[in-house]
Computed example of a mutant assay.
Amino acid sequence: MRRRSHRSTAVLAALAAAVLGVAGCDAVGGDSPGPDGTEAKQVKPKPTPAWDRSPSSVAAVGDSITRGFDACAVLSDCPEASWATGSREDVDSLAVRLLGKAQAAERSWNYAETGALMADVPGQMAQAVARKPQLVTVMAGANDACRASTSAMTSVDDFRTQFEDAMSTVRTALPKAQVFVASVPDLKRLWSEGRTNPLGKQVWKLGICPSMLDDADALDAAATERRDTVQERVEAYNEVLEEVCAKDRRCRFDGGAVYEFRFGTDQLSHWDWFHPSVNGQARLAEIAYRAVTAKKA
């Protein structure tokens, strides 16, 4: 009986040790206490935002608007009045707003060309990326619609391919560079505003945007159809700009802000009543700055 009692005691001790051992274990293992409260939550680092609202350098590509054509003198470029990279205080360009005047003089570059089509933008972009800018601005497409006739306008498919080539150029060379894309202006509104000025209409006869501005006072069915055709093409171009830009996480389209801006006579050049004046360039700079510095596109 005593021997059996000793054996029973040993079995109970072993069972107790086993139970206590199981109770002392947890999901972490060993003798470590289990996590509780905030200790159980892992702190994840915040992702770096894709869009930097304060880039340190700016390059511009595009056409006569970005060159400040007719803003300062008749039939002349005036890059110092450019909405994108200009130095004039009464414009307060995008580059100056982002970088400050001193830095903008050293860290901004304008490769736009008067008369440029979207087909020219990939080449301009190749020049721009050589500077390694953190932000590239694009404003092009007006000249693709401003042709000798509606049949000569750049097709929508070609326009898309050319813009995709431009985006590919910057993305291949500078994977992290940002691109701001401005919409094509409302050319029909520019005709409507400018046609009230006799001098402007005389300058138009020199060959400024004939598809829209020829026979400026004509309101017959043929003239109306011609202008509507140009307008529809501009709207199609803007859809392309938006769609292609949306595929790139470091690209921002202006949401049609330039197209929707209601240029008045104060915002139009008093030499040709079609291109932006200094005041108009300042308004474009405001639109671009709001888009680039917005928290969300």
Rank of each mutant, 00 (worst) to 15 (best):
G207M: 05
D92Q: 14
L15H: 07
I287Q: 09
H270L: 00
A288I: 01
W191A: 08
E260F: 00
T38H: 11
E235N: 15
V234I: 14
A81N: 12
V234R: 05
A14W: 03
M125T: 14
T293A: 06
T66N: 09
D248F: 06
S151G: 08
W83G: 02
A145G: 13
A40G: 06
T48W: 00
G123W: 00
Q134P: 00
L199N: 13
E286A: 07
Q103S: 12
A59V: 04
E89H: 09
D248H: 09
V230W: 13
D120M: 08
G280T: 05
Y237W: 09
A14D: 00
E239Q: 13
D63R: 03
D157F: 05
G123C: 05
T150N: 10
A148I: 10
H6K: 14
A95W: 00
L20F: 08
E235Y: 00
S82F: 08
V129D: 01
V61D: 06
G86V: 09
V278Y: 00
A140W: 04
A294G: 13
D157V: 13
L199M: 07
E106S: 14
A140C: 12
S57Q: 04
W109G: 03
Q178G: 05
E242G: 01
S93D: 03
R88W: 09
M125S: 04
V258M: 11
A288E: 02
G86Y: 02
D26R: 10
P79D: 10
T293S: 07
S8D: 08
A216K: 10
T38P: 07
M167D: 12
A182R: 03
V136N: 02
N279V: 14
V43W: 03
I287L: 15
L20D: 00
A116L: 15
G21H: 09
A16P: 13
D70C: 12
R252L: 04
G86N: 12
A17N: 02
Q231P: 01
Y289S: 14
E239F: 02
C251W: 02
C25Q: 07
A102K: 14
E89T: 13
A50H: 10
P33G: 11
V138D: 01
V19Y: 06
A104P: 05
R97S: 08
A16S: 14
L20K: 01
Y111W: 11
W204F: 03
E106C: 00
